[in-house]
């Protein structure tokens, strides 16, 4: 403890000595123990977010690691949170599998002085200090509906291929999408079915197949999950419906590249998952250094991403999602 104090005092004075603009990042404490806890470890999306976060932690001289379960059940993350408490981490950065189930454990963590940052999917606000939102929920939902409307000419039946029936963020987006559809601009679009691919490749693949079979007049599918949209695109690419059924959603450029090039998918969206992890790590570092507390209006600097402001309910928004299409997809590699 004592050593940490001297070290931080040292960095603080170094920070003061250096240029004033750098003072904020410079005063992050060194050797902070920060752990990333993704929904599921070892799936490509979270490997990217975690690596972004670990890179940031390295930048500000902390000790980072990524641990987590290999299934998406609500309870699987709890044992990891408990272990991280026992290990006396300085901060936990997690993507929640359940909005409520983790709250009691996270409260216990916060009671012991551990800072909690959520990213990707949030828990109830009293279970964390800051939530790093990849993009505003209504921005994603409205953007997806707008894109779909453009692709299918504003008219006809479409379906949603979601992740698990309990996925917090997907359900939030779908609820906003359903509201959005009530607008007169979308009166000719009809959401006929919400299917669940459980974020499993094969299940998503067969669900997509089922959708096309059960709804012969289907004109579009929105799959707001990286696993679902890739599987759906793969099925569509070899199906006679290719080019007739429009597909969009949230996907990673690397998984979708070939489907955009062969015309299966015109456009899709995503934020940069590496940046998401990076920002979450800086938020955790700033919290653990006592520079911010998660109150509305506070600001912190996230390395190369620049300055961010804490919004209502401790929410920090990464930025608007990027729309990928033929013209720009080759510029991205994640």
């Amino acid at each position: 403890m004592n050593k940490r104090l001297t070290v931080s005092a040292l960095t603080l004075s170094l920070g003061l000595l250096s240029a004033v603009g750098l003072a904020q990042t410079g005063s992050l404490k060194k050797n902070l123990k920060i752990a990333f806890l993704p929904k599921i470890i070892n799936i490509p999306y979270f490997t990217t977010t975690d690596n972004g976060g670990l890179a940031a932690i390295k930048e500000f001289g902390g000790v980072g690691k990524a641990v987590g379960p290999s299934d998406g059940g609500a309870s699987s993350q709890v044992s990891y949170i408990n272990t991280l408490i026992a290990q006396r981490q300085d901060a936990i950065v997690l993507a929640a599998n359940d909005a409520n189930a983790l709250v009691p454990s996270l409260k216990r963590a916060m009671a012991q002085g551990i800072k909690v940052v959520t990213f990707d999917s949030d828990v109830a606000p009293d279970g964390r200090n800051i939530f790093i939102n990849q993009a505003k929920s209504d921005g994603i939902a409205k953007g997806q509906i707008e894109l779909m409307s453009k692709l299918m000419g504003g008219k006809g039946e479409f379906a949603i291929l979601s992740a698990t029936p309990n996925a917090t963020n997907q359900n939030a987006w779908i609820a906003i999408m359903q509201d959005e559809l009530k607008k007169p601009a979308y009166k000719d679009m009809k959401l006929v079915k919400i299917a669940y691919g459980n974020d499993e490749d094969q299940k998503s693949f067969t669900e997509m197949q089922g959708l096309l079979q059960a709804y012969p007049n289907l004109k579009g599918v929105i799959s707001p999950t990286t696993v679902g949209v890739a599987a759906a695109a793969r099925y569509l690419s070899t199906s006679p419906k290719k080019g007739k059924v429009m597909l969009t959603g949230l996907g990673t450029p690397n998984q979708m590249r070939s489907f955009v090039k062969d015309g299966t998918v015109t456009a899709f969206q995503l934020w940069n998952p590496g940046d998401l992890g990076y920002l979450a790590a800086y938020a955790a570092g700033s919290l653990a250094s006592g520079m911010i507390t998660g109150k509305e209006g506070e600001t912190f600097t996230a390395g190369k991403l620049g300055k961010y402001t804490v919004g209502k309910n401790g929410e920090v928004v990464l930025g608007p999602p990027t729309t990928f299409d033929k013209s720009n997809i080759d510029k991205f590699n994640f």
Partner: peptide, 16 residues
């Protein structure tokens, strides 16, 4: 016990 321990009732609780 599970429902109260996690303060969450879900259809997929404890699968596997």
């Amino acid at each position: 016990v599970y429902t109260f321990r996690f303060a969450s009732a879900r259809a997929d609780n404890a699968s596997g």
